[in-house]
Design a protein around this nucleic acid. Structure first.
Length: 478
RNA sequence: GGCCCCAUGGUCAAGCGGUUAAGACAUCACCCUUUCACGGUGGAAUCAGGAGUUCGAUUCUCCUUGGGGUCACCA
């Protein structure tokens, strides 16, 4: 039988990385098994619907490189793929379930329901409306009394199933409530819609967060009543913010979009989240989508939650950045260059060469090159360096020898600059570090720079290099 | 609170009855070096606790502890 998995988000805002990972695993599992990956929009709660959220879902999948085989925009014959457009289907099946004894009409109002609250304020429905005769039900229906349809769960026995990652899960029936299947507005709840849809859409493997682990027996009870074959289940452990908190929209940058804005590369984000809660048998860490697809295996899924470690995520991202060509880097980093004080004033490609090994995420860029525009009035004590046996006096001496040579040549290539500096070192009997440090500081006024003396000179260009050398000489003397 | 689930270094994690308990990130030291990086080498650091089972438990069972989930006309 063909493997069919689905990703069924509700359009309530940005795409959380936990959701993205669930989506990814569903995709990887389907593709690994030459199956189909279906996208379904679960919008049965009109109150939580957020305008534009569906677009975010499409965009995120597209950017992440996850391509669904069927969905609202790709009919595969089992649509519609948007739950709000399937309203009539759910009601039809709910009525059928009533006939089969798996569900019943309930007319209890909020007041009565509230009166059911027990010791901990926890209320469990008491099957009150189960006692209604068919005639009473018909009469209430006919007179327009608002109703819901509830699942009829046996009061004794134990329901169990075998989860692909957690193994045997057994829950006493008495602990499950007769949940609402059809709301009073006629819409189904998730509990019912997911069962009907997964069956009608021929989903073979249900992959979702483990918050459903203990409610799955309820769903299985419905499959059984309908006489449908139960799907395989793969519940996933949560992605945590820290040891005791799940990643949430309220805290930090848990959205895919936020990581993009911080300058993470898409393949790095996908790679990293794939590794949260799963590891390939050979423990590789840097993997492309194609490699993930090939290596994905349920055996590697862990049962406990994993904390998202941004330090490691940054490291992974830096690995991807190092593989970029200078042109690719410039293209991706453009928005970040523009945010810098040095925006538009330097050759981005030259900067790219210096930045590639030094940047972990693209948003590191501005802070690394802002010094280019914050030059005058730097701290003179930078020249006092014990390790290189340096002081301001020597710097003055070196600068006086350097300036004429830097003025004379028009060749600011690495080789020529090296040659000029070597000459100064040789003639003056200096230590290498003394000269290089002096020039670099005279050019940048910064303790740390994304490159050495010659690279900075090349970057600044002859005119600016000479100007800065002269400025620094006077600055040191004065 | 009931029910369900989980538990290897700071973090991600290999392990699946006998191992010097991998690897990666982070961290520390050193090397490389014209700063900072990159890179290289090395170090420190983990089986939550307690009972069993077994010749032998990180691994199997139970209990304790800790944590997560769930108990909506939300998904």
């Amino acid at each position: 039988m063909e493997v069919r998995t689905r990703f069924a988000p509700s359009p309530t805002g940005f795409m959380h990385v936990g959701n993205l990972r669930t989506c990814l695993y569903g995709y990887l599992f389907a593709k690994k098994n030459n199956g189909k990956f279906i996208l379904r929009i679960e919008d049965t709660d009109q109150e939580r619907y957020v305008e534009g959220a569906v677009e975010i879902i499409y965009n995120t999948l597209k950017k992440a490189g996850i391509e669904h085989d069927e969905g609202p925009d790709k009919d595969g014959g089992v649509g519609p793929y948007i739950q709000s457009e399937r309203k009539a289907i759910y009601l039809e099946y709910a009525k059928k379930l009533v006939e089969l004894g798996g569900a019943y009409y309930c007319f209890c109002d909020k007041e009565r329901l509230d009166s059911l609250a027990g010791e901990n304020g926890i209320k469990k429905y008491d099957k009150h409306c189960m006692n209604l005769t068919p005639e009473q039900v018909q009469q209430k229906l006919a007179s327009g009394v608002p109703y819901v349809i509830r699942q009829n769960i046996p009061q004794d026995g134990v329901s169990s199933y075998n989860d692909m990652v957690f193994g045997e899960i057994a829950v006493p029936n008495a602990d499950m409530e007769d949940g609402i299947l059809i709301k009073s507005d006629g819409m189904p709840t998730y509990n019912f819609a997911n069962v009907v849809d997964d069956h009608l859409m021929n989903i073979t493997h249900v992959i979702r967060g483990m918050e459903y682990l203990s409610s799955t027996p309820k769903y299985n009870l419905m499959y059984d009543k309908f006489g449908w074959e139960r799907p395989q289940y793969m519940h996933l452990p949560p992605i945590m913010r820290d040891a005791t908190h799940k990643l949430s929209k309220r805290h930090g940058d848990a959205n895919f979009e936020d990581f993009l804005e911080k300058g993470y590369l898409v393949p790095a984000i996908v790679n990293y989240i794939a590794l949260l809660g799963w590891a390939p048998s050979d423990n590789r860490e840097k993997m492309s989508m194609a490699e993930l697809m090939d290596a994905f295996d349920i055996k590697g899924i862990s049962k406990s939650g994993s904390i998202l470690d941004e330090a490691k995520m940054k490291w992974l991202n830096s690995q991807y950045i190092k593989e970029l060509s200078e042109d690719e880097f410039v293209a991706l980093a453009k928005p970040f260059f523009e945010k810098s004080k040095a925006a538009g004033k330097y050759d981005y490609k030259k900067l790219a060469k210096l930045l590639i090994p030094r940047v972990e995420i693209l948003s590191d860029i501005p802070s690394k090159i802002d010094f280019l525009e914050e030059f005058e009035g730097y701290d003179k004590e930078l020249y006092e360096n014990k390790k290189n046996k340096m002081d301001k006096q020597i710097a003055v001496e070196i600068l006086e020898k350097c300036i004429p040579k830097f003025e004379q040549t028009d060749d600011y290539s690495e080789e020529n600059l090296q040659a000029i500096i070597s000459e100064i070192i040789e003639q003056g009997g200096y230590k290498k570090g003394q000269v290089f440090l002096t020039i670099r500081l005279a050019l940048t006024g910064a303790q740390m720079t994304p490159g050495g003396a010659t690279e900075m000179a090349d970057l600044l260009g002859k005119q600016e290099t000479v100007r800065r050398l002269k400025y620094s000489l006077e600055y040191l003397k004065g």
